[in-house]
Nucleic acid binder design. Structure first.
Lengths: 339, 339
DNA sequence: ACAATTGCTCAAAGCGCTTTGGGAAATCAT
DNA sequence: ATGATTTCCCAAAGCGCTTTGAGCAATTGT
């Protein structure tokens, strides 16, 4: 059942039916009711391709994952997209998902812009200096960044969590507990979030007159194995750290394993705080002892980012949104006074 | 630059240009070369919406995730999709990604079928008795299942790994090592893969005259916490198992934690074998001792599934593909003779 | 030599929707 | 009663592509 048939059935023109369905004002209330009723009864749905061709808008959002093969499909990303996806569906938007195949990431964006395949894109995992905003700006493709491009805050839409503040507070909690050797297991520091976290960490230490020691700071992909390897190494050090700040729960699994292997106990011999994005398969509360965390739902961030982007598309002249979410510090059993 | 302009520029009709570009035979080789050259030069790309409207085919594949809120966004799924996505991109197909929002899963499929939004879908995480194949068959929407619907092997396209055989071999390895109390940490047993794994496990035990003891078998969502909780409980049992068969690496993190907490050693006091889907953030080789695993890349499965589906779409009359992949058993350090 | 075939190209008709530019009837103002 | 508005609806033009059905040359067959 298409528009033509529906219109014929109602003895109305396609114009009127289309307008009735799309809520235009210049249609009689009674007629509109009739149209809606009939549409419902025949389960009429406009053909999306025709709609897109006619309007030039695609009702779709693009998410493109880095083509870099070494950069794995991070579970953080999937959870974020899951959150966003829910909001898109709720608003009748499709999600176009692009995992860098042979086509290089730039050309994907170019194609999107040129063909109008999507109405907007979200940029995930922004780097300190990210070519994507320049390209997207040039292409005039609406976009929003989850995170920030270094310390840049203007000229693009973004939603970020206060990584710097969060890690500062976490580190401060540790210094308050008397820790002076606090190790940092960070993500790859070309990513903005990782840099911000290091900055927060360093600020807190400096504020307490504790020197920054690169020997107990690391920057790796966030995997179990790296968590283990780095912690193992840290525990073998002469001046072994008494506390550990982890950028991801993924590190924690490995870190805890290393601690156990050394016959040490989390929360007593060594304090651990991790940033918890709320990954559903790895719960901080479920660990023993329950883990003290910086908590912020990456899934909710996804939902909000989607919402903001859709608003941007609906109202292109509105000022660009920018949101900085604060992060909760939840103290549980993995932190204790320094030995 | 659209077709009309390109045609005008070449002093050709749209028909000819279109045909030249789409490889139809009835166009002069020289003309085709000219067209291709010009298309390249002007970076012409056909408008996908127009193409879709004209052909009725969408050049897109749908992946819809269960709307069930309790069913988390499984990292296994994302890795699978990542694999598939690469193949789609390589062939100019888009991926439509749908995370069950308010719209219920059935209506998503209905909408897909009715509007022609996608040319096909892949069914992930099939249940023992899955309504999706009936619906999709009825809707005449091409689809392929990653896994199988119970023991059904005909009437639909699928690609599965030999879960039953794999777990049989793994259990047999353990019995060969002298283990008689072998626990099973399985996924939720409404999923076909989990049932197959249990069957393989039970067959191996029965073959060795070992009774099936439900007290040391469990069926849960595959999370770290469940792995920990179940293992913890197992180790407290009077007749503590000497070996553990895990359906996912996600369980293993928790299981190992429980073992360590008890002061026991993996590979000595207790043997562990896990199914490893190749999740990039959790490597079996990286554990200590390195884990003996059933190994099968879920990402490669994704790529292959995508390839098969695209073939099905291109050649609808061809027989439905069905592939059963064998699983590698890689013996590492986490398995040893029973104490 | 003429008809039949082949090779290449084109004009025009869709695909199913939105949107423009009217226009007839009903309502209002004077 | 007349002109000016307002209300509601319509025919037709597009959106940018594919595809049908012809048509003109050039080639082939007899």
């Amino acid at each position: 059942m298409n528009l033509k048939q529906l219109a014929a059935h109602l003895n109305l023109s396609q114009t009127t039916v289309s307008r009735a369905l799309n809520g235009y004002p210049e249609v009689n209330a009674e007629t509109r009711a009739r149209v809606n009723e009939a549409a419902q009864r025949f389960n009429y749905r406009p053909n999306p391709h025709a709609m897109r061709l006619a309007t030039g808008r695609s009702h779709a959002i693009g998410h493109v994952l880095p083509s870099d093969r070494t950069l794995m499909i991070d579970p953080h990303f999937s959870d974020f997209i899951a959150g966003a996806g829910e909001h898109y569906s709720a608003n009748g938007f499709d999600v176009l998902f692009n995992v860098g195949g042979p086509e290089d990431e730039r050309s994907v964006y170019r194609r999107y812009a040129q063909s109008g395949a999507v109405d907007g894109v979200v940029v995930m995992g922004p780097r300190l200096d990210d070519w994507r905003i320049d390209l997207l700006g040039e292409l005039e493709l609406p976009f929003i960044v989850h995170g920030r491009i270094g310390d840049l805050e203007d000229g693009y839409a973004w939603l970020d969590i206060d990584n710097r503040g969060a890690f500062q507070r976490a580190a401060k909690l540790l210094t308050d507990l008397g820790h002076r050797r606090i190790a940092l297991l960070n993500g790859v520091e070309i990513m903005t979030f990782a840099v911000h976290r290091r900055q927060g960490y360093e600020e807190a230490l400096s504020a307490h007159g504790i020197g920054i020691d690169p020997a107990i700071m690391s920057s790796d992909q966030m995997t179990e194995e790296n968590g283990y390897r780095r912690t193992r190494h840290l525990l073998d050090l002469n001046e072994r750290p008494t506390a550990l700040l982890c950028s991801s729960m993924l590190f924690v699994s490995g870190a805890v394993r290393a601690v156990h292997e050394k016959g040490l106990h989390v929360g007593e011999d060594i304090s651990i705080i991790a940033h918890d994005d709320g990954l559903p398969f790895l719960k901080a509360e479920g660990l023993s002892p329950p883990l003290t965390t910086l908590t912020s739902s990456i899934r909710e961030a996804g939902t909000r980012v989607a919402q903001l982007l859709l608003q941007m598309i609906a109202e292109p002249s509105a000022p660009l949104p920018a949101e900085l979410w604060s992060v909760d510090l939840i103290v549980r059993g993995s932190t204790g006074p320094a030995r």
